[in-house]
Design a protein around this nucleic acid. Sequence first.
DNA 1: CTGAAAGCGCTAACAG
DNA 2: CTGTTAGCGCTTTCAG
Lengths: 341, 341
Amino acid sequence: MAAASRPTIKDVAARCGVHPSTVSRALSPAMKHLVADDVADRIKAAANALGYRLNMAAKGLRTGRSGLIGVLAPDIADPGFPPVLSGITDHLNAEGYATIVVDVGSNGSEQDLVDRLIARGVDGLVLATVTLRDDVVKHCLDAALPVVLVNRVDAAGQLPSAASDDVAGMRLAVEHLVALGHQRIGHVAGPQHVSTGARRRAGFEASVRDAGLSARHTPVETVEAYTRAAGREAALRLLARRIRPTAIVAANDLLALGVYDALAVRGLACPHDVSVVGHNDMPFVDMVAPPLTTIRIAQRDMGEAAARLLLARIAGPEAASEHIVLAPQLIIRGSTIACGH
Amino acid sequence: MAAASRPTIKDVAARCGVHPSTVSRALSPAMKHLVADDVADRIKAAANALGYRLNMAAKGLRTGRSGLIGVLAPDIADPGFPPVLSGITDHLNAEGYATIVVDVGSNGSEQDLVDRLIARGVDGLVLATVTLRDDVVKHCLDAALPVVLVNRVDAAGQLPSAASDDVAGMRLAVEHLVALGHQRIGHVAGPQHVSTGARRRAGFEASVRDAGLSARHTPVETVEAYTRAAGREAALRLLARRIRPTAIVAANDLLALGVYDALAVRGLACPHDVSVVGHNDMPFVDMVAPPLTTIRIAQRDMGEAAARLLLARIAGPEAASEHIVLAPQLIIRGSTIACGH
DNA sequence: CTGAAAGCGCTAACAG
DNA sequence: CTGTTAGCGCTTTCAG
């Protein structure tokens, strides 16, 4: 029956015949040492008996720290993101923080979403958002809000970030293909306004150059979005070239699946006619036909690193902005094969 | 420079020469009608100029409503969940709520996580958690916390829920197979302590019975978890039976991929030797080899329906607990084929 | 229509 | 070691 509203610190105090602040101290690990052990025990017992729970909103109002972290995601449903998110939330949860996840694609402007998060008093932000136009970042900096980037880096490199080594990843892909004898390698590049797109492209170009391949033999087609359909279109353009590539490396797995689609359209077989390499090692790309050779990135670690970075930022005032770069790994499967030529 | 902390309602009031409560009224859509239009305009202008943002924690403390909703997920990284989550958060965001997502698998007990959410003052909970042991549900009810289930129903059916029609889905699968001439159909059943596992199994059994197939010809193997490995083991057991099935319907796509693995182990070809049907239509199951015939469930809609249900629960006191059931859809791809016999 | 006053639940000085 | 006091930023009576 006693569907009474949540008990407060006052109720506990009354039941123990002590002052509310004593209860507050007894229940706070940091201040517990200021209260007699027997009293503290009595208080804890009473709190348990009453089913007392700390009211974080009240605490936050008082202390100015909410224990809330905002995560801005480009698209929650993107299969690449969940592992990152999981890494973020797990670490944050373990440290007593709760995570508010916002999907940027859907509602309102990013600015707006950030403002709503600020209104909720978030202690910091993890940005996994696609486009790093300065305005959002600037907006956060203006608000003196700790911010870290995940799976992204900003152009100026002024924000802490946790990301995979995109350049090294592309090098892995290109060198694998070159070792297989491929001389004509195309690249389906991701959106150039996001760091993964730009850096992977740069990595591709540097690697093919280092391998001694000419630009003519290493064409690049850029997409506007990381979608399977965009990958298909770009690959079709690549395949229509005078000098047809014998291998294509895509800026991510979704794009690579689009490359598969394009190959099917053209009646070409993978890997027989064209080898394909993806990037990210999304769940189940080992099950597609043929199993996709790809660059595995440490998504969960990335999320965890970002969380750790953010917490450090929140704790220490202005530690030099750190960039955590995670090593990628080549996963060889069935979509790459030695070149016939 | 003025990196001053966030302006409050008081700052705005001072700047306008009015009382803080007037500012509060002017800025609250519901109370705006109590303040002169010109004053309201002046206040809004000043608020904008100062970059004032409402402090939700303070508001929540006062009103008792936080505008926060908790979502308990079994495993964020499970590829089936993101679309549901996205449906939930989008709808909630649009209604001004923020969503705290908690991964149950990782830290602490579910009870604990719920308590932490309660401490944060959530206005309600969406439970997408696997096991519906009464204790968690009871715990929420005791706390008088509005709760809805998504992709799950509780045994007693006392909680509002949004879920796919699992029985109908299995009927779709079985009838498809029967129409193809299959007479020996096995089922890899999901965990029986979660509603999808139990209901899909029930749906399977009812459907094969209605199709006139005997129990001997429709063996069932149950797994303890929705994993690819578990699906593989269960399928191996099914294939080792005296009467080998010519088709297997799995309780979900992950399990179905495990069935693929088992088939490969046994040197059997899908669909030639054994047809396979999945459930859920996870992203990219159209790309595996062979493309998986499956039952598509309306995941995004499910999330949205759950959000709507929860909001209704929060608004209206005790509306009769509603069950939204979404119609599934058979997606025929390459993993099912007419039976030779 | 606007001001005054009180208080949501908690913590952080400051006394004692 | 414990009680007192004040106040975080906001809403909401109650007056006027």
